[in-house]
Amino acid sequence: MKQVTIAICNYNYERYLAAAIDSALAQDYPATTVMVVDDGSTDGSRAIIGSYGDRVLSLCKKNGGQVSAYNHAIASLTTEYVIFLDSDDVLYPSAVTEVMRFFDSGEWAKVQFRLDVMDNQGALTGAYVPNSEPPHDCGRLLRRGWLYPSPPASGNAYRVSALKQIFPVPEEGVNRYGADFYAIYGVALAGRIATVSKSLGGYRVHNAGSETVSFANSEQLTKAPRAFNMRWAILRNIAKVRLDIELPATFLDFSHEKATFCSSVYRATLFTRWHWMLRNSRGYLHTIIANPFWSLKKKLGTLALSSLCLVPYSPLSDFAVRYIANPLARRRVAGR
């Protein structure tokens, strides 16, 4: 039986850490090892990790950021496959079994799966991510600059040999976070991607109710575009030096453009909304119209919703922006 590691990278998440570890230990795939990398926590995390004894492999290090924790974990792996589980997320008991069925069926670099969205208390919201599936050969589109639809970090299982073609990643300065960016997109340059079309875990979203455009946990809406541009530049250099692959200077991604769109028009004046749509929306509209992962129906629906930001009635405009940006807002409408 092929060996799999569930690697949990933790920093000061004692409130959620035990649930993550318990879900990893509860896997019904016997050849599963649980590794916890603690990145210099100052809360009670290390006591929680210690309470599991030899049921988990504990790697404690000085604080260096998420990229440093990934680098350390990948360098320590001895198994052929790994799932990186965020310490505030959980896996369902059959997660490893399900992804290994795919790995056994072909030479996949990564198997990704949906995650059910949980609120801060762990209650399911009825939403899930992602809402689109990429083709198996999404590396071909990535070479043209298109970032493919992927779940957050916890929804990805990797072939370790593919990850080691990308990692270690530079961890100095501002590049402390966003390790999952390099793992998710980097491995698509090393092999094919498979998708499990059902949820195998839970993704916890903090402070992101249906009345806000914020959804991702890692970064503020206004900072995300700048961070993605920096990471793309680093990934381009890694691809060129290690894989002899030349990526384009800029990338194409609806989620990235959506962050710019939302920060520009949400709760803005009518003049500001019209000005942005007329003068600055080219990239946003292009990632809708030319999106290779979306159906025509989804493209037309997103364009129609986006046009509502131009109406004089600001509550309707703001609702449309929330609906585009935040899956929780969509579930609220569906549940009415």
Results as ranks from 00 to 15, higher is better:
A233H: 07
A233P: 08
A233V: 04
I234N: 01
I234K: 02
L235H: 00
L235M: 03
L235D: 14
R236S: 15
N237L: 08
N237F: 01
N237H: 10
A239R: 02
K240Q: 11
K240A: 10
V241W: 10
R242H: 15
R242I: 08
L243G: 13
D244Y: 06
I245M: 06
L247H: 05
P248Q: 03
T250V: 05
T250R: 09
F251I: 02
L252Q: 07
D253K: 00
F254G: 06
F254V: 05
S255P: 01
H256A: 08
E257D: 13
K258M: 10
K258G: 05
K258N: 12
T260W: 01
F261I: 00
F261A: 00
C262M: 08
C262Q: 11
S263W: 02
S263V: 06
S264C: 07
V265N: 12
Y266H: 15
A268K: 06
F271E: 14
R273P: 13
W274A: 11
H275M: 05
W276N: 06
W276P: 13
M277A: 07
L278M: 14
N280E: 14
N280Q: 12
S281C: 08
S281M: 00
R282I: 09
L285R: 03
L285W: 01
H286W: 08
I288E: 12
A290Q: 15
P292W: 07
F293D: 14
F293A: 09
W294V: 01
S295D: 14
S295Y: 07
L296C: 01
K297A: 15
K298D: 15
K298R: 13
K299Q: 14
L300Y: 12
L303D: 12
L303H: 10
L305A: 15
S306R: 01
S306T: 15
L308R: 13
L308E: 11
C309W: 06
V311A: 09
V311T: 12
L316G: 07
S317D: 02
F319P: 01
F319A: 07
R322D: 11
R322E: 12
R322S: 04
Y323K: 03
I324G: 05
I324R: 00
